[in-house]
Amino acid sequence: MDGSKKKGLLLRYIIAIVLLLIMIFPYLYMVLSSFADWTQVDRKLIPTHFTLKSYQWLLGGGESVIPRPWIHAFFNSFLVSAGSTLLMMASAIMVAYALAKIPFRGRSTINNFILFQMFFPAIILLIPTFLVIQRLGMYDSYLGMILPKAVSLFAVFMYTNFFKAIPDTFIEAAKLDGASDWQIMFKIVLPMSKSITTVIFLFLFMERWTELLWDMIVVKSDSLLTLNVLLSQMFGPYGGYPGPMYAASVLLTLPILIIFLIFSKKFKEGMQFTLK
């Protein structure tokens, strides 16, 4: 490799490192500030004194005057996100299998309708959905947070395209052996879809985990607040406690980071399919 090529490669590495640092610095700043001494939070770009005071304050309930159920809010976020994600994936698998592998009249129309609906912003259905939930008596409940998020057109679209790529010979051979559509779906098609399932799961869980607007509207009890809603309320009474705010933000992003690291290999495989 001659000198000019080495210089060009070195320049690309430098640019890549600089861009990477720019991307990760906000998260790094948040983590450092969550451990920083309260006298240095938002006063120094890179703190020099560190403590666990923010996390102790946060998990201990905060000020006794206006205590907040941080641990319970974290549990609420996990319960709602996991329940909604599982329902979204289950409904998407069944709908996508029918659209991809079961011939019936109107299948292409339904496919086009799903694609058409994906271009509509979800906020236009916010008020009608709220009124339905209220009429059904699910306002201020876990069901009110979970059920309206039980269907994902994105997941249906992704699964449908992946299932179409699975050769029909597998389906026909299973039917000759007497397998039903349910058995084919869960014992043949789904095990072959681990990579795309990982991608869909991560996107859906992350989307539901970071949901704020719907949870603010449908819940009024403190015992049902999710961590996102609790964080949004911190800017009022807890505006004078930036350290715990950063600590709560770290706790909010931690599950997403852990799940991504666990499923990173399958996620890369799934993304390779989606980019083809």
Rank of each mutant, 00 (worst) to 15 (best):
A16C: 06
L99S: 11
L227M: 13
I146S: 08
L125K: 07
I46A: 13
F116G: 04
L45K: 07
I259K: 04
F116H: 01
P67K: 14
Y55H: 04
I259S: 11
F35N: 11
L202N: 01
F113L: 15
V156N: 03
F273V: 07
M88L: 05
A90Y: 07
I171R: 03
D140Q: 02
L257T: 15
N112E: 08
S81L: 05
M89I: 15
A248K: 04
W182V: 12
I188Q: 01
T197F: 10
L231Y: 09
N76K: 02
A73V: 04
P47S: 13
P121N: 13
L224C: 09
I71G: 00
T39Y: 08
I146V: 15
G178A: 00
M245K: 04
L86Q: 01
P244Q: 02
K101V: 03
A16E: 00
F203K: 09
G236R: 10
M216F: 13
L9M: 10
F162A: 05
M89V: 12
M234H: 04
M216G: 14
D2H: 08
V65I: 15
R135G: 00
F267H: 00
L59H: 05
F113I: 15
K101N: 10
L59D: 11
N161W: 08
M185I: 03
F50N: 06
A248N: 07
S84C: 01
L32G: 03
F157D: 07
T109H: 12
L115V: 14
R208C: 05
S34V: 10
V219K: 12
D168P: 02
V95F: 08
L59F: 14
E172D: 12
Q183F: 01
D140H: 13
Y246S: 11
G239R: 07
I200F: 06
V132N: 07
S77W: 05
I258D: 03
F260N: 07
S33D: 03
L204F: 05
S34N: 06
I22F: 05
D222K: 15
Q40P: 11
R12Q: 13
G60F: 04
I259A: 11
F25C: 08
A100N: 06
A96I: 09
Y246C: 03
K7Q: 12
L59G: 10
V151M: 09
P121A: 15
M216R: 15
